[in-house]
Design a protein around this nucleic acid. Sequence first.
DNA 1: TCAAGCGTATTGAATGATAAATAGCAGCTA
DNA 2: TAGCTGCTATTTATCATTCAATACGCTTGA
Lengths: 239, 239
Amino acid sequence: MAVLERNNNLSQRMTQQLGRAIVCGEYSQNESLPTEAELCEQFGVSRTAVREAVKMLSAKGLISSRPRQGIRIMPEEDWNIFDSDLLRWSLEGNPSLKVLKEFLQMRIAIEPEAAALAARFARPERIQAIGDALERMRLAAEGDEDGLEPDIDFHISILYASENRFYIRMRDFTRTALNVSISHTNVIKGNPDGVIDDHAKVYQAIASGNAERAKNAMFLLIDEALGFIEHELDRIGEM
Amino acid sequence: MAVLERNNNLSQRMTQQLGRAIVCGEYSQNESLPTEAELCEQFGVSRTAVREAVKMLSAKGLISSRPRQGIRIMPEEDWNIFDSDLLRWSLEGNPSLKVLKEFLQMRIAIEPEAAALAARFARPERIQAIGDALERMRLAAEGDEDGLEPDIDFHISILYASENRFYIRMRDFTRTALNVSISHTNVIKGNPDGVIDDHAKVYQAIASGNAERAKNAMFLLIDEALGFIEHELDRIGEM
DNA sequence: TCAAGCGTATTGAATGATAAATAGCAGCTA
DNA sequence: TAGCTGCTATTTATCATTCAATACGCTTGA
């Protein structure tokens, strides 16, 4: 019998267990998952709990469930991978360089444009929030502390400043991407002052309402990391 | 008692009914929704059905449900608005120009970069698919038929050609955006040949592996529509 | 060989009962 | 009065059981 974690309620834990197992590829894409009855037995819970977990995973596009056919894993391209649970589950293991590259390729589309929108449309308090995050980055660097949290806040506050709900919704994606990146990019970013300068340029461009410059500054910021990853992928010969 | 549609099974219909009601703002953000028991009565279904619907909407980030507190609507920024159900529900009414603009602002980040990635990395069969869609656009224009489907296929096949799972996942978003746009942009696109030429330029750039040109061509394509919307918003004075 | 029909496995839905969680109130203490 | 503690009622959480609907695949009959 699989062991369930202690937090949350039973059906949420079931959801996490099953969801993780699916995204980690523990079930074959082709054949069915165990039936509801079998899952009840395996996890030692009632059918209600299993069914609620199945419903939640269906809502995330991971599985489908039909009478007499059982529970099937959906094709991966149908999964709602912008769902924060899915992002977390799929990255709890060891994210490959390939996934890291895919994150950066996405960020390089979103964030420069978000910065441009921020420069054009952001309300003052949103710009203030970006500046605050930048200041906290500076303090962390001076105090030799971990600067990841302020860094994440900086990028996310720009998404908010875009004043566009779709950009704002990329919050969890960006947070996850930055959390995942840390292990890799920390290796190269031996120059915290340079990093902060690059961030400051983005902020200044946004604060002064210069959309084009904000976009370019953010592009450079991310492109540097992307270039590094692509170079590393070439070196390894993977992909 | 609310009337449920006939398709699908009961809990899915409940999910749709409730979900639609929430995104359409029929419940106040602040106060709780009716209790499970009340929802059972209102919709004339069992608690099982209500609970499964609640679980599915929780999985989409729309609501949270806790003992003694009841069912609460989550802040809008936590909704998984890239979920295709949510996109559909929120656009079934009359999409405002503002939402239309937000869609285009997002597309202008995603699609040019997707085209650039496609030019660099697409496998031959993906490029073939783009070409096929373009050809079908041409045929539709010549035959004076509805060219929306081929148009959508064109844009989506470029997402696939990016060979990046996150871009591919924007499929439903892009499809929805294009479906929504039709009512507005059809007004201006009195020049189908010009539209097809613009699309052909994107295709040619991708097929010839010119990332920069692919990106610019796609940018122009979307920027034109965005410019139109922004102009219209100015004219109306809204926003 | 094939088509129609049937049995059966599996999910869908309802019901009733009990457990667990918690918001809010009452009362107690300093 | 302020703040803490514990009680209670309300609401969701979980379970067990039952019946219904559905569709796969076997059997049967021509």
